[in-house]
Write a protein that binds this DNA or RNA. Structure first.
Lengths: 340, 340
DNA sequence: GGCTGGCACTCGCACGGGCGGAGTGCCAAA
DNA sequence: TTTGGCACTCCGCCCGTGCGAGTGCCAGCC
């Protein structure tokens, strides 16, 4: 029916107006600002239906209407065209990210860029270890029985770990150990590392076995340990810009970011290649993020997911623009890291 | 004079009451809560003097008094006894920090601990590179002419950097290069590294010279580059607890933290060995931190400063307790890092 | 049947006056 | 120099009012 179509237009208009003004929007204002070709009265009827269906709500009787989570959902799924970035923005992305000297730097720039572009809180996950491969393993002696194991992945990520050995070791042993580890692990996916350990221990020269066992164990441990997935957060100041809404909404979000639960969300959705995922309000499992939306996407080259990145902001955000920004940044970062 | 003495008592009482209640404090309440042995009227006279001297102020006529920055300063300098930590707190520190597996982990735990202990925003600086010594240098080939230089310091800090070489290199060259670099730099203070470079280049085998030059340049560059000093921030959620005061005070602080100007403050004060430094309100150079106080201290072993750590909070904070916490944590972290 | 204009109704909010209370400053007396 | 008393000031709160925005409904129109 033509009516359904128009009702959706109305919903779209409501979302757009509300996002830009932050005021509940009424029928009259709608009729004025958008040429829907019908009178306020008609819009009122449509709004009544939309409210009944749960897409919009009024904060209190005789105020304008506000989109519900369900309303935003429909908007994102069916009513919004992804807004292409301006040329200037593309340039800015490029300019901002080029010239990064290492992984830390890349991710730091990324998070700042994303925060600036979307004016929201940005979150970038380090490339997951389990999806990475070993580029090099380094063993450095710290003290008699204490070794420092340094893992360098093909994504440029560097992890370190102190290993306590059962016995004292000398420099020669360290060298042997290093060679052994590298020949065994270099090039291997870290996800497969666990499987290789027993074999490696068995075939190692007898005097090295305890060492190999201890170091390998440490290596595997870094993988499974919670917190193996590091996170960079930026743009938290943007939360306050938003938070005129309800005081007391900033707190839980900051807490959630610090506890890094957001990253779990990101990870669990990253497998989808290149599709931007939007979680709106109540759709977020964690209750601290009720009232917030998360826009996230995986980054990496097409054949190889590396990690996730995204933004966190109020449900009342400019989805089309932000989704475009998140996607564009992810693409660029993916390329950049694939090169190195 | 006995009067001066009592006036200071009054100031102390005002600070204490105001910190705990967040309400301007009046003469009557003071007389009740602290046994100063005089009547409210007398206290009023003292308060008039204190106000004239600039130690306290009234938000508006006929409200109670509030300490000024100058008042807090006097309180911190002369009126507060450092409050020793409870046994439970000491235990907590120990428990919290033990079991850290690497530097990243140590500093992450430290910042959480400090934030939790003081209920303020905590800031921890990575051990400065320039004060560290080289434990090991690793060179890994990434592509034909592209090398990854990994620096491991004696504080456990690991830095990486991609180096573009003027020419393609083979595996053998890389091995030679690595040996050369390590024999030259291992054990050396990074601050001295710059001076060693020319000599190293001159004495290197001819075919390695361009490589050595490029890599050394990259190494030196990591030192001088702004941002060589990394920062961990935690407990930002605590800002909101405080911010009932004035909305609009949170924003600039978050921004300052992200721009890492705070770290500059920390660094510039770290040289003093073990003394806790307090910057109150306007004393902070950066205008975003007007209205906030910074409590900071250097950490490291007695003979060797490593970096700084501290907290940022409202001027209205519990200085004695927080100073004690900052100091205790710094001591413990210093020990911990000295060991490894 | 759906759209439109008109109209009465409902609230929230901003404005303003009145009140109470906390706190001060000053003064005179001990 | 301290103290109790007292008048004064001013903030914050409560409440009543008026206004305006927005709605829902209804009767008429296309």
């Amino acid at each position: 029916m033509a009516h359904d179509e128009r009702r959706l237009q109305v919903l779209r208009a409501i979302v757009q107006d509300f996002v830009s003004t932050n005021d509940p929007v009424g029928s009259k204002a709608l009729a004025e600002r958008h040429d829907l070709g019908v009178s306020p009265a008609t819009i009122r009827n449509d709004m009544a239906v939309l409210e009944e269906q749960g897409y919009i709500a009024q904060p209190h009787t005789s105020a304008g209407r506000v989109p519900t989570d369900k309303g935003y959902r429909l908007f994102v799924d069916r009513l919004s065209a992804v807004k292409p970035l301006s040329g200037a923005e593309r340039k800015a992305i490029e300019k901002f990210l080029d010239g990064a000297v290492d992984l830390h730097d890349v991710l730091g720039r990324t998070v700042r860029l994303l925060a600036q572009l979307t004016r929201q809180v940005a979150v970038v996950q380090y490339p997951t270890l389990s999806r990475s491969a070993v580029r090099h393993l380094e063993v450095v002696q710290v003290a008699g029985s204490r070794l420092l194991l340094v893992l360098i992945t093909d994504t440029g990520r560097v992890e370190q770990r102190v290993v306590e050995c059962p016995v004292d070791v000398d420099a020669e042993c360290v060298a042997e150990l290093r060679a052994l580890l590298n020949s065994a692990f270099t090039g291997a996916k870290l996800a497969d590392a666990g499987g290789k350990v027993p074999d490696l221990v068995d075939t190692a020269p007898l005097h090295l076995r305890p060492l190999v066992a201890a170091v390998s164990a440490a290596l595997v441990e870094t993988l499974v340990e919670p917190g193996e997935d590091r996170l960079v957060v930026g743009g938290t100041a943007n939360l306050t810009r938003t938070a005129l809404d309800l005081p007391g909404t900033v707190r839980p979000i900051l807490e959630a970011l610090e506890e890094q639960v957001v990253v779990l969300k990101l990870i669990s959705e990253v497998d989808t290649g290149g599709t931007v995922v939007v979680r709106i309000g109540e759709e977020n499992a964690h209750e601290a993020l009720t009232g917030a939306s998360v826009v996230s996407v995986g980054y990496g080259s097409p054949d190889r997911a590396l990690g996730g990145l995204g933004i966190v902001g109020p449900t009342r955000m400019d989805y089309p623009t932000n989704m475009a920004a998140v996607r564009a940044v992810a693409r660029y970062v993916g390329q950049l890291l694939a090169e190195s």
